[in-house]
Design a protein around this nucleic acid. Sequence first.
DNA 1: CCGTTGACCCTTC
DNA 2: AGAAGGGCCAACG
Length: 105
Amino acid sequence: MSTLPQRVYQLVAQIPKGNVATYGQLALLAGSPRASRIVGAALYRAPTGLPCHRVLYRDGTLCCDQAFGGKEIQRQLLEAEGIPFLPDGRVDLKRCLWPGPKEQP
DNA sequence: CCGTTGACCCTTC
DNA sequence: AGAAGGGCCAACG
């Protein structure tokens, strides 16, 4: 059994294109439902190549204005992935939250 | 080696 | 309905 952050790396790396996940969801899948903070720190300290831009808040809001380099960059990346954005500046988790209905029928 | 901090989320006042 | 605090685990100084 690997450490929690190590587990998170695997989960985030397996998020399919067009889907997004939340820190709490990853923490839950990693084995610590309350350790959502560790997930954030893990992604922050995570190696390059990890689609950390697919990880959002529980409400669909972006993590913070300075995450990975800029919220606008993250918005562009998500739109490029096919993630619809709401006029509020949030992501429609109902459409893109992972695991989605296609992955979990 | 020990103390503090941190891309969060949930419960209670 | 809005605000505040607690809890988790690992990495940095």
